[in-house]
């Protein structure tokens, strides 16, 4: 693996101690050890390990990239290549509630953009941004595979189906 430019935050030698700045808590450590028994190669554990990391830290910081790389004998660049390819790995911190509005065709014709626009207006943020109190992030996402109950808003891991602006307004105050 060719070395990256030393200014690149994912270059191995720039932050030799970065991988040591974070560590899985014991429960996640155990789940990680179990993962290793389920795949024939260490590399194959990368996606599930990143899911574990996101569960712990909420996003995949450069430190986490280095840490996960050190666990699986992968270069930070290779780990970051995967992190940046997949949508669900957050490359910056997100709010406590990650409001993911599906706006693909079936949801769109069921007025999903009304919900999306309303959320941005009400929370006074642009798409992709987080409210100042760190509570909400609003993003537009691609098809969530629940078109029969459109429009759908995924909040963290949960689907909220058959949504509309009124239901969203009623739901927001319960997300504290």
């Amino acid at each position: 693996m060719a070395d990256l430019h030393p200014d690149n935050p994912y270059a191995k030698d720039r932050f030799p101690d970065r991988a040591k700045q974070v560590e899985f808590p014991p429960e996640h450590k155990a789940r990680f050890e179990h993962l290793l028994t389920r795949y024939p190669t260490k590399e194959a554990c990368l996606l599930p390990t990143l899911h574990l990391a996101q569960e712990v830290w909420g996003w995949i910081s450069p430190e986490v990239v280095h840490y996960v790389g050190s666990l699986l004998d992968l270069s930070p660049a290779q780990v970051f290549g995967v992190v940046s390819f997949y949508n669900m790995y957050n490359q910056k911190p997100v709010g406590k509630y990650h409001l993911q509005v599906c706006t693909n065709l079936s949801c769109m014709v069921s007025n999903a953009y009304d919900i999306y626009d309303h959320l941005c207006d009400r929370l006074k943020i642009n798409p992709g941004e987080t409210t100042k109190d760190g509570l909400y992030t609003v993003v537009e996402v691609e098809c969530l595979g629940s078109c029969g109950t459109a429009p759908v808003v995924q909040i963290n891991n949960d689907y909220h189906e058959n949504m509309d602006v009124a239901k969203m307004d009623a739901l927001l105050p319960t997300l504290k």
């Binding site: 590399e43 194959a44 990368l46 996606l47 599930p48 899911h51 699986l72 995967v82 997949y86 949508n87």
Partner: peptide, 27 residues
């Protein structure tokens, strides 16, 4: 069997993209 969760990439529904993803690569 093991349940392997993807991470939000439509292309991993393509047979060989899915295989790459199981191996821990970009799909």
């Amino acid at each position: 069997m093991t349940v392997h969760r993807g991470a939000g990439a439509y292309i991993c529904g393509e047979e060989t993209g899915l295989i790459e993803s199981v191996e821990g690569h970009r799909g």
